[in-house]
Nucleic acid binder design. Structure first.
Lengths: 173, 173
DNA sequence: CCGTAATTTCTGTCTTTTCTGAAATTTAAA
DNA sequence: TTTAAATTTCAGAAAAGACAGAAATTACGG
């Protein structure tokens, strides 16, 4: 697939942001390419377009599938896999946030629960420190629960709430 | 400074999460240590407690200061720097979100603006692709603006809204 | 100013991550 | 089956990042 200058620019930018986003350059570039591509692409097309090893595409696609950002389709009379990315930008954000919560928050939540549970037996740690850990646990639990609730709300509702901006505050006054 | 088993566990966990959070192990461990520490610590104390090079502490502290998570204090009659971390967990979250937005979102927003502005001159890129980029720009602009608004709201208001969970939806019905 | 404590910068080493190319495996048509 | 295309796995090369220790700089008391 031939990249136009604009697409080229986006793909390169995605690649540059990759390390900040916590994925490898290949993963980010492939995602950019599939997100922009007007039609699904085969692994070979991706490898050729981005000049990366075919095997690299295979592994990167696996990761994008784990994030639920890319899926496979097929063409009649063609055994190759055709990959396409989620095009709905709102859904893309949701998938990324879900993934990040699972990887970046949940393990810590788990650890804080254990640490707090064990605090009784621990007579060395100053009360002040235990309290800080407990406070943190409570805060993260609350945030986590809030996120799970928001996640269930229909998109139009969220959109309306978002567009109200700070005006939502009036309901709590 | 001597770590109690509970503190030890937290510091190690922070270190393990570091790569997922996008910082180095040292940065995460130092942050954990300073967050839990009942009193400010010198760079030497940090280096000794965590068994890392003194220079490493210097660089890591710089990064934590760039995130606005750590500040310097002094003791009378002691020229050494004493470092302390923000203890308010809500503020810590805010600083991290601000930092992430600045590093992970703003550069992309910038790029999307430029790409969209240049779209007129670009006659190669399919309309469909240009549209996808424009939609993405609009979405990210909207999210970004929303975040900036929310950021200005007083904490008690946000807390109340958070505790309402999905009940906030009733104001848009 | 001088000497020393404290901190930072720099350079090279070590570790980790990413990526490639080859080999192995899977898949499906013949 | 057999065969060939398609995909995945794997081992090692290459690149990036983290870190230690030395050297340089800064800050301060005398």
């Amino acid at each position: 697939m031939q990249l136009t200058p604009t697409m080229h620019r986006c793909v390169l930018h995605w690649g540059e942001m990759a390390s900040r986003w916590g994925v490898s350059r290949s993963v980010a570039q492939i995602h950019a390419l599939l997100f922009l591509a007007p039609a699904p692409l085969t692994a070979d097309e991706i490898a050729e377009t981005l000049n990366v090893a075919r095997s690299n595409v295979s592994v990167s696609i696996k990761e994008l599938q784990a994030w639920d950002l890319v899926s496979v389709t097929h063409q009649l009379g063609d055994r190759r896999d055709y990959f396409q990315a989620r095009k709905d930008i709102w859904e893309v954000l949701t998938m990324i946030m879900d993934g990040r919560k699972k990887r970046e928050v949940d393990p810590t939540l788990q650890m804080l629960r254990e640490a707090t549970a064990d605090a009784g037996k621990d007579h060395e740690t100053p009360e002040q420190v235990k309290q800080r850990i407990a406070d943190m646990l409570e805060f993260v639990e609350e945030l986590s629960g809030w996120y799970d609730q928001i996640r269930t709300m229909p998109r139009p509702t969220l959109l309306k709430l978002m567009r109200m901006g700070t005006k939502v505050a009036k309901i709590v006054t």
